[in-house]
């Protein structure tokens, strides 16, 4: 598992990267009430704002962590946004990217690095 400074977690299986937000991020956001996901099949570039997530407090974005194609999105969290608070690092993943160049992954933090990052 790798982590971004935007509090995303990235799980790599072959050429597919599954993306979600960390438990720390979910706690900071508070109760999530709305999620808008990218369209399956869309080509995205690193740092594109591809997810809108709104909590009772505020709106925020999730950035694409890598260049790739969105191959699957988790409609369950659109229907029940509270899942993001209940199980952010499991059931409530956001989208899956098909990635050809995995090299930017080396720049992301491992679990120990992320724990240091959030202090």
């Amino acid at each position: 598992m790798k982590y971004t400074e935007e509090h995303e977690w990235l799980q790599v299986e072959g050429e597919i990267v599954t993306v979600g937000i960390t438990a720390h991020a979910a706690e900071q956001l508070g109760d999530v009430v709305f999620v808008e996901l990218p369209e399956v099949g869309s080509e995205v570039s690193k740092d594109d704002e591809i997810v809108v997530i709104e909590s009772v407090k505020a709106a925020s974005d999730i950035l694409a962590p890598l260049d790739g194609e969105v191959v699957e999105v988790n409609e369950a969290i659109v229907d029940a946004p509270s899942k993001v608070n209940d199980d952010p690092e499991g059931e409530a993943w956001f989208f899956k990217l098909k990635v050809s160049d995995m090299s930017p992954m080396d720049d992301y933090m491992d679990e120990a690095g992320y724990k240091d990052f959030i202090g």
Partner: peptide, 8 residues
Amino acid sequence: VQYPLGIM
């Protein structure tokens, strides 16, 4: 602004 219960 909130307690451990949370806003909702």
